[in-house]
């Protein structure tokens, strides 16, 4: 069943067109990998889907659960179930990770018309989820991402994903800057969370991550367009031959 349908999506930043007409359909239960050289528009696509204001959508549509999300504010998209794991997670000094996560979860619950979660119940939940990404509980009482190493920040993204349980998670180069152990932990987190009701879009430069998170489809993005799609074998081919053979 179709979860996300991107149709001829074009987007600008400061008057320069970055996305030149993207078409992509993601069904429930699927994992899509998006690969491509630097500057091809991968992160722009992620930001546009999440609703970042700097980007102006000039054409096309994005249907998520049959609703055009381009009209919605970023926080509404989040509450509908779109999650973006940031390439560069932001530090929020003085705001504890715990408080941040609980506020976010309660916003989602309010949106769904559910009761908000009590601090005690939340503590149990978040400890469980932290264990999933092998995160020391002491990070929960620290300020959001402040003084975290690159790997800790990425794990914190996966923790947030585990708490919010999105229907569509977009991982924007979550593997960049991770050592092999951290990579494995992040991948395990994703694999534990995947089920027949949700979907993942994994943006990456390297085939390496796809050994751990096995995609159903691989797309190559170049110059703001998807120029080739295939199965996981395409990623292996790219690893071997680079991008030139497709681009030229």
């Amino acid at each position: 069943m179709s979860l996300l349908k991107i149709n001829n999506l074009k987007a600008n930043i400061n008057g320069t067109e970055i996305l030149h007409g993207i078409n992509l359909e993601v069904n429930k239960g699927e994992i899509h990998a998006i690969m491509g050289p630097n500057g091809s528009g991968k992160s722009t696509l992620a930001s546009v889907l999440a609703g970042k204001k700097e980007f102006e959508v000039t054409e096309g549509s994005v249907l998520f659960r049959n609703q055009n999300v381009l009209e919605l504010e970023p926080d509404e998209r989040s509450k509908m179930g779109i999650f973006l794991a940031f390439q560069y997670p932001v530090e929020i000094p003085g705001v504890s990770n715990m408080n941040f996560l609980r506020t976010a979860l309660n916003e989602h619950k309010k949106y769904r018309g559910e009761e908000i979660i009590e601090p005690g119940t939340f503590l149990k939940l978040v400890r469980e989820k932290a264990n999933l990404v092998k995160m020391d509980p002491k990070f929960l009482s620290r300020a959001v991402n402040e003084g975290f190493s690159g790997g800790e920040k990425k794990r914190n993204e996966i923790l947030q994903m585990a708490v919010l349980e999105p229907t569509l998670a977009i991982l924007d180069e979550t593997d960049s800057g991770l050592d092999i152990d951290a990579l494995r932990i992040v991948a395990e987190g994703v694999n534990t969370l995947r089920n027949s009701e949700n979907a993942f879009i994994v943006i990456t430069h390297y085939q390496r991550l796809l050994n751990y998170i096995v995609p159903d489809f691989v797309h190559v993005l170049h110059n703001g367009k998807i120029i080739k799609s295939g199965t996981k074998d395409l990623a292996l081919e790219l690893e071997e031959k680079g991008y030139d053979w497709i681009i030229n």
């Binding site: 504010e73 998209r77 997670p89 976010a104």
Partner: peptide
């Protein structure tokens, strides 16, 4: 803007 967008993306209003 990045900090606000980050919190927005987790479901928290501006």
């Amino acid at each position: 803007d990045d900090a606000i967008f980050y919190l927005n993306q987790r479901g928290i209003s501006t």
